[in-house]
């Protein structure tokens, strides 16, 4: 058994054999500002390096492209260890708005675009964006309810088919 395992181990002849990243496929499942910006910056950064990029918006991630909600995303103050804030403090009324405004101010100082503007930039940069069919059905959303740059509402299977190929990677946010 041990021999078999050893034989199956890949043989790496050259240490510097690098496989370039050709495509990044992001799955955005949350609509907290921190998650949305992480996803958008990574996708935009990929395009800037000449790497293909795709975002699949699923579950609460759909809020980031929901015309009615995309301008009102928040940063979570409860259950977000990155906030360095005791949960009880995060739950105080107004705290989430305060933290969100703080974060928005900091992002403005860094010249980061707002969510709707960022979506325009991503579309112009050639990032392919899709909504998840199951999530859209669940939230009763149609393509018309979503940002115009959303190419289509597709199934998980469609997503995997698009993500196939050498040097293609999937990241779940």
């Amino acid at each position: 058994m041990e021999d078999l395992l050893l034989n199956d181990a890949p043989v790496i002849n050259e240490v510097d054999q690098k496989e370039p990243v050709r495509k990044m496929n992001f799955i955005l499942s949350k609509a907290g500002l921190d998650s949305v910006y992480a996803c958008f910056i990574m996708a935009n950064g990929a395009r800037m390096e000449g790497i293909e990029a795709e975002i699949f918006f699923t579950f609460f991630g759909l809020d980031a492209v929901n015309k009615k909600r995309m301008e009102h995303l928040h940063v979570a103050t409860v259950g977000n260890p990155g906030m360095h804030m005791p949960t009880v403090l995060g739950a105080i009324p107004g705290m989430e708005t305060f933290a969100t405004n703080m974060m928005k101010k900091q992002m403005e100082d860094l010249d980061l675009p707002t969510v709707p503007e960022f979506l325009e930039i991503l579309e112009a940069s050639g990032v392919e964006m899709y909504g998840c069919k199951l999530a859209a059905d669940m939230f009763k959303l149609k393509k018309e309810d979503l940002f115009e740059g959303i190419k289509d509402i597709i199934t998980v299977g469609d997503f995997y088919a698009k993500a196939s190929g050498k040097g293609s990677h999937i990241v779940f946010i």
Binding site: G50, A124, S125
Partner: peptide
């Protein structure tokens, strides 16, 4: 930044990617 190029008035982001493909 890409955003600044987009707001330059010289070109837009889509054209910028077309002018200088693969890492404009």
């Amino acid at each position: 930044t890409i955003r600044k190029v987009g707001g330059s008035g010289i070109t837009d982001i889509k054209e910028f990617y077309a002018l200088f493909p693969n890492g404009p």
